[in-house]
């Protein structure tokens, strides 16, 4: 993810240079009111668990390898290294002091949908809320309730180790002003229920674009290149593949794609690798219908060469 943050943070420096009142207004956190999360149904933890796996929370917020051993304590995950410093995904267990146990639904919702924490400060987009912003409030409530069923930990979160000026959270408002919204990533001509579900999962909780879409110099997604593949975020050798029908997936059937997400095996029996391994393990926990919906959506989006 290194170059991603490079771009985002480079953009921030630019925004800071703009200065003045406009800057102050643009960068102010814009949380949703409590009412955005009022009037929802009683939370459904089964659906919450589904979103938990779709969202891949465990991949960032739990120590490496813990999930395979059945340990879903979200006590904080592996450091995410970038050229600007290191992010430490925090403890998000229900512990009231070390985790988010004292947060209200609206506070949690604002972290997920607006990238604003319980104290009203901006969160770094290393936490992929730029995608989660598309999630439905009811799904947020269900996910929140499910998280409360997981084990607590009183392990204190580590401070991110970021160089100045990237350490100033306020600057993130500039990035959010430019890129944070809940609009669809692609307009599809005809969308049946299955494709619509796939669109929701891929563009929202699944945050597939965070890796598979190339970015401009400010860290925003390049237009017309949705899921068209991107350089290795760690720099150097390798590429994140194009998963539009214009890439290698052209020769995969929907069943092939769904099966890859379930088992990690490509149609020619190559095995999944790189950062997709964690994603695939999470996808394997979804109901088959969700994997099929994702496959249908990937076949329906514009082909990019």
């Amino acid at each position: 993810m290194a170059s991603l943050f490079g771009k985002i943070l480079g953009g921030l420096a630019l925004a800071a240079a703009a200065g003045g009142a406009v800057f102050w207004f643009i960068t102010a956190p814009k949380p949703l009111p409590e009412s955005a999360f009022a009037g929802l149904s009683i939370p459904d933890t089964v659906n919450g668990e589904r979103l938990f796996w779709a969202g891949g929370c465990v991949s960032c917020h739990a120590p490496k390898g813990a999930a395979e051993k059945g340990d879903l304590t979200l006590s904080g995950g592996e450091p995410l290294k970038t050229p600007f410093g290191t992010f430490y995904p925090p403890n998000i267990t229900a512990d009231p002091d070390a985790g988010i146990g004292s947060w209200s639904l609206a506070q949690f919702g604002n972290a997920m949908l607006r990238g604003v924490d319980d104290e009203g400060e901006h969160l770094y987009p290393a936490f992929p809320y730029g995608s989660y912003s598309r999630m439905k409030p009811q799904d947020i409530a269900d996910l929140f309730e499910f998280l409360k069923t997981l084990p607590k930990s009183n392990k204190a979160s580590a401070e991110h180790a970021l160089a100045f000026p990237y350490s100033i959270r306020r600057l993130l408002g500039g990035w959010q002003f430019l890129y944070l919204n809940a609009k669809p990533r692609v307009e599809l001509a005809s969308v049946d229920e299955k494709v619509a579900r796939g669109q929701y999962l891929v563009e929202g909780p699944g945050h597939c674009g965070e890796c598979h879409t190339p970015r401009d110099s400010m860290g925003g997604f390049l237009s017309g290149k949705w899921l068209a593949g991107a350089p290795n975020p760690e720099g150097g050798k390798g590429r994140i593949p194009n998963i539009t029908p214009g890439g290698e997936l052209a020769s995969w059937s929907e069943t092939d794609i769904a099966s890859y997400l379930e088992t990690g095996m490509t149609p020619d029996f190559d095995s999944v690798g790189g950062s997709m391994v964690e994603v695939q393990k999470n996808m394997a926990h979804l109901p088959a219908s969700d994997r099929e919906a994702i496959a249908a959506y990937l076949k329906a989006i514009p082909a990019v060469k």
Binding site: G238, P241, M265, S271, V272, Q280
Partner: peptide, 20 residues
């Protein structure tokens, strides 16, 4: 068996194989 073995393939490819 496929589950066990597949996880072993993935564990190596995760760190040591870079798709191009």
């Amino acid at each position: 068996a496929v589950k066990t073995l597949g996880a072993d393939c993935g564990a190596c490819h995760e760190t040591y194989r870079l798709k191009d």
